[in-house]
């Protein structure tokens, strides 16, 4: 604990680290721009997609304190809407993604409205139950293609002239969406609204006593998280050119929790690192005879037992400890 002087600026102690952060952001951006030259672009795009999905989930769990067990409904639901919009309605990719996000917002508003009245494990169970209902809807609805899903979705031309059929064009489109989504999350977390969310997470009863209608704030955060998860799902439908039941299963909801916890909840980079780790494990072990889920599960257990704050969470805590010395 350090003494603070009266002359210290109100913006707080973080102000002095701004140039260092800017440098880190620039290096990260450069690495992402160059990544497809060193790695298989589809693999990196998949990581970016799941990183955005996990970050959207983290907005709810890490910054609002709500554990949703049904985020696959937004991710997979948006993928279906985007795939349908391209294939049946002939939408261009940018509008198809937008339609997917709007679909996720609608699903998020309905599930959120019903679930937000309960807390803790009851909230998680309601989101799980409603997302399972959505899974069965997707299984039975005529336009989703049942167990086959919607296949052969054309990527189309962005703004009418950028051919997303070319992998590198598609990569930079996905990168743009990823950065936009991450920026949106960063903005929400570091905004007046984000400060209110933090207060609700820290002490909900106190927040109510200060006149805050906490359910309205929670529902707003829920819908925002659903929208960004939907953005990730829509993008995934365009990358892989299909939307299937896999994306709306409860296992997908579980996977995103795993990614977020492994990376570190409540940190901006944690879910990105967690998603990178899980997707890489899945990719590397895809050809192995050993079941991927066992390895992922074991890694998760190792993470929880050895560093509970997650990878990025532990690194951040170590930096704080080092600075306090």
């Amino acid at each position: 604990m350090t003494e603070t002087s009266l002359s210290q600026p109100f913006v707080g102690p973080a102000a002095g680290r701004a140039p260092l952060r800017l440098l880190a952001v620039c290096i990260g951006f450069a690495a992402l721009v160059a990544a497809p030259m060193f790695f298989y672009p589809i693999f990196v795009m998949k990581i970016l997609c799941f990183a955005l999905f996990a970050s959207a989930f983290n907005l709810l769990l890490g910054y609002t304190g709500l554990l949703s067990f049904g985020h696959a409904a937004f991710f997979g639901g948006a993928a279906y809407v985007t795939a349908h919009a391209v294939k049946v309605w002939g939408f261009p990719p940018e509008l198809a993604v937008l339609a997917g996000v709007l679909g996720a917002i609608v699903i998020g508003a309905v599930i959120g409205f019903l679930a937000i009245r309960r807390q803790g494990i009851y909230f998680a169970m309601i989101t799980l139950a409603l997302s399972q209902m959505f899974y069965f809807f997707c299984l039975q609805a005529p336009f989703t293609g049942g167990e086959d899903g919607i296949q052969g979705v054309q990527r189309g031309k962005l703004l009418g002239f950028i051919d997303l059929g070319q992998t590198m064009n598609m990569y930079y489109f996905v990168l743009g969406i990823f950065l936009l989504g991450i920026f949106a999350i960063w903005r929400i977390v570091n905004s007046p609204f984000g400060a209110i969310l933090k207060s609700i997470r820290e002490n909900e009863t106190r927040a109510i006593s200060l006149g805050l209608s906490v359910n309205a704030y929670k529902l707003s955060a829920f819908v925002m998280s659903a929208a960004i998860a939907g953005l990730a799902g829509s993008t995934k439908a365009l990358i892989f050119q299909f939307a299937t039941l896999t994306d709306v299963t409860w296992q997908m909801s579980g996977e995103v929790i795993l990614m977020t916890l492994m990376g570190g909840i409540g940190t901006l980079l944690g879910p990105v690192v967690g998603a990178g780790l899980v997707v890489t494990l899945q990719n590397v072990l895809a050809t192995s005879e050993f079941p991927v889920t066992v390895i992922t599960g074991a890694t998760f257990m190792l993470c929880v037992l050895t560093f509970r704050r997650g990878i990025v969470g532990e690194i951040e805590a170590a930096i704080v400890r080092w600075k306090r010395r």
Partner: peptide
């Protein structure tokens, strides 16, 4: 309390 698009600096 609801401005999610503004920076924390706006609370100064």
């Amino acid at each position: 309390a609801v401005q999610f698009w503004r920076s924390l600096g706006s609370l100064r």
